[in-house]
């Protein structure tokens, strides 16, 4: 426990430092990539608990994100302005912002129970399709809500709150807030994975029947996994809404859910570091290919190359970048030729 508090404090300080460094020395365009990567990591690491640890297959992650985004945005708008009205952007208050994030997480998490429980009846592809369907229903219902702005969604979502000493930072505190939750989700996911609950989840993935016969309550743990993923997806949604200052239901189509799956599989399903690597690659790759596109003068070329790379990657390394292993120093050392570590004859 004391260690947990110390870690948390260190995390806060690190995020503050990161935000300061970026706003001081790095161009705003690149800071934008950093933020998008952070949001992607929160989504991917959360979903990894569902798809990677318990071995369920959810393609409805965008649905949880959507709920979190709209709940958080609406609450934040009401707290800050008292009504939906046009006008300049304002900063959200610290307390109300944290409360809104919590609210988004809880709303999405509650939905996670609602989806996770019936999903217990389904396996494999059928589960995948059902979650896809759930995600789409969520989005369509949001589109039909006139009180939430219908298809055009919500605008004028407040800026993320300032912290002491950040008043002069251009670009605001989004890096701090986003990476604070990156830190939280990664820390909690790693701790979950390395606990009796994490082992039980992996046991369910590896052989559900054997796990149940050993007394592992698979139904409950699968729902827990759903709630964990959904909670953080909800928070990611709320952060996204505050970051963009506007949300539309169409920001959360199944395409986004599939993107998160691609991150997981690219990085290596079941590995936290893999999920992070996948989030970075999938977010950055199209951007890195931009110069190529401009050089060739063909609009849309970067996405074509991105899709091609995805296919080639899967055909030649179907287990993902890291497989199920975690990236560690030992693994890195093993990759250096001539120093294959570990085994003595």
């Amino acid at each position: 426990m004391p260690r947990t508090l110390a870690l948390l404090l260190a995390g806060v300080v690190a995020c503050y430092g990161l935000n300061w460094f970026l706003s001081e020395f790095i161009e705003v365009v690149y800071v934008d990539y950093v933020n998008l990567i952070g949001l992607a990591i929160i989504l991917a690491v959360g979903l990894n608990v569902v798809n990677g640890l318990t071995g369920q297959f959810s393609i409805g992650h965008a649905g949880f994100m959507a709920v979190g985004a709209f709940v958080g945005a609406m609450a934040s708008i009401l707290f800050t302005y008292g009504e939906i009205a046009a006008g300049p952007l304002a900063f959200a208050g610290l307390g109300s912002f944290l409360f809104c994030l919590l609210l988004s997480g809880l709303a999405a998490g509650a939905l996670g129970v609602l989806v996770g429980a019936p999903a217990l009846r389904l396996r494999g592809d059928y589960l995948a399709i059902a979650t896809l369907g759930f995600g789409e229903i969520t989005r369509i219902l949001l589109t039909a809500q006139d009180s939430l702005g219908g298809p055009t969604g919500l605008k004028r979502i407040p800026k993320m709150p300032l912290l002491p000493g950040t008043e002069t930072w251009d670009g605001g505190t989004s890096v701090f807030w986003i990476y604070l939750f990156v830190f939280l989700v990664v820390g909690l996911a790693v701790r979950l994975q390395r606990s009796t609950f994490g082992r039980a989840m992996i046991a369910i993935r590896e052989n559900e029947l054997a796990a149940e016969t050993m007394g592992v309550p698979s139904a409950r743990l699968k729902v827990v996994a759903f709630v964990f993923g959904a909670f953080f997806a909800g928070i990611a949604g709320a952060l996204y809404a505050h970051y963009q200052h506007s949300v539309r239901p169409d920001d959360f189509t199944s395409v986004r859910s599939i993107e998160v799956i691609v991150m997981l599989v690219l990085g290596g399903l079941g590995s936290v570091t893999g999920a992070i690597a996948g989030a970075v690659v999938v977010t950055l790759l199209p951007q890195l290919l931009r110069p190529l596109e401009e050089a060739m003068g063909i609009d849309g070329l970067s996405m074509v190359v991105y899709a091609l790379l995805l296919i080639v990657m899967m055909v030649f390394r179907p287990q993902g970048i890291f497989g199920q292993r975690e990236l560690s120093l030992k693994l890195l050392r093993g990759l250096i030729p001539g120093r294959r570590g570990g085994k003595t004859p």
Binding site: T196, R199, A203
Partner: peptide, 25 residues
């Protein structure tokens, strides 16, 4: 045989002891 292939030998056996754990998440 239905082992948990990706878990270590020790972790496989530990999984058997999960049901008597008294802690929560």
């Amino acid at each position: 045989i239905r082992l948990f292939d990706e878990l270590s030998v020790l972790e496989n056996a530990m999984t058997g002891a999960h049901q008597h754990s008294r802690i929560n998440l």
